[in-house]
């Protein structure tokens, strides 16, 4: 066996970070009762904008911030359409993906290339050198930890803060929340913008750290996987980590098993996470999905 489980676990964390980032944003959006299927479009727009800003300023961190803004800007189109013009969320989200893929490709036409920006790795004096755990957990780039902090922050926000309570109320039953005097629309717009920013950041992680380069179509479906993970996690932030690492883990493991020369039916292994997601949906039943998910809200009714 040449597979080194320590390196495998460490690689898994990096491979899972973009989908985790995009998923945490989408989770908040869905908890607010909005289904945005445009994650892939926002992600790739973030990837190209992050790459261009990062290289323009020669600072990857500006790139990450720029990508988050780009993702949020694109998600504002979705917010305006679904919240103010009351368009159907499914169709608008699909349109956003189409538009985002086109836009990113247009923006990035002259920018194709690989990134030579260096994103430092965490190197703490003692902790990073702990055998096994140090290598797995404490030698990554800062964005890996940002993604985990975002998960923790989201958990805290949703379950402990008052604003989070309102957001959940809006997602469960927007009419009741409205009757209680909460601003449903504002809450949802903010959630959508947060989702867009996370998706943008996720995209720039691919173009600035993980691959790192800009090529048309570089996200290659990661945004769709993020959507699956949110469901897999049954809208629970902590489970999102498990979901992201499962999806990311299957990819990394599958490559490692192949290199090991084991005869594995790659295609069936790639299906496994999606089937697992369906299984989770069946096991948890419907009650857990936010009650108003995907429904339009108009205050006068």
């Amino acid at each position: 066996m040449d597979i080194n489980p320590i390196l495998l676990l460490a690689a898994l964390m990096v491979a899972s970070t973009p989908i985790l980032l995009a998923a945490i944003g989408e989770l908040v959006v869905e908890r607010a009762g909005v289904l945005n299927l445009g994650v892939e479009g926002m992600m790739i727009t973030g990837a190209v904008c992050g790459y261009i800003v990062g290289h323009g300023t020669e600072n990857p961190y500006f790139g990450f911030v720029g990508a988050a803004f780009a993702g949020a800007a694109l998600s504002f189109v979705f917010a305006a359409l679904t919240q103010f013009l009351l368009t159907n969320q499914v169709a608008t989200g699909l349109g956003l993906t189409m538009f985002g893929l086109g836009l990113a490709s247009l923006i990035g036409q002259g920018a194709t290339g690989s990134s030579d920006l260096i994103v430092g790795k965490l190197n703490l004096p003692i902790i990073s050198d702990i055998p096994v755990i140090g290598r797995i957990l404490f030698q990554h780039d800062p964005i890996v930890y940002v993604s985990l902090l975002l998960v923790a922050g989201t958990w805290w926000f949703l379950s402990k803060s008052r604003a989070g309570l309102i957001l959940r109320a809006v997602g469960e039953n927007h009419d009741a929340a409205h009757a209680l005097g909460y601003n449903v629309r504002l809450m949802r717009v903010l959630a959508i913008l947060f989702g867009g920013a996370c998706a943008g950041l996720a995209g720039s992680y691919i173009s600035l750290v993980r691959v790192p380069q800009w090529i048309d179509g570089i996200t290659s479906g990661a945004g769709w996987i993020a959507l699956a993970i949110v469901v897999f996690a049954s809208w629970n932030p902590w489970r999102l980590i498990a979901g992201a690492y499962l999806f990311g883990g299957v990819t990394v493991l599958q490559l490692n098993l192949q290199a090991e020369g084991l005869k594995i039916p790659t295609e069936y292994l790639s299906m496994a996470p999606y089937l697992a997601t369906i299984l989770v949906l069946v096991v948890i039943r419907a009650g857990r999905a936010p009650g108003s998910l995907g429904k339009s809200f108009h205050p006068s009714s």
Partner: peptide, 24 residues
């Protein structure tokens, strides 16, 4: 560029969905 057509289709969809508001 092919990408411009994709953007264009996205715009078409957005405006068709958006003006639907006027119907209801």
């Amino acid at each position: 560029p092919a990408a411009a057509i994709k953007c264009f289709q996205g715009l078409l969809l957005f405006s068709l969905l958006g003006v639907d508001l006027l119907t209801n």
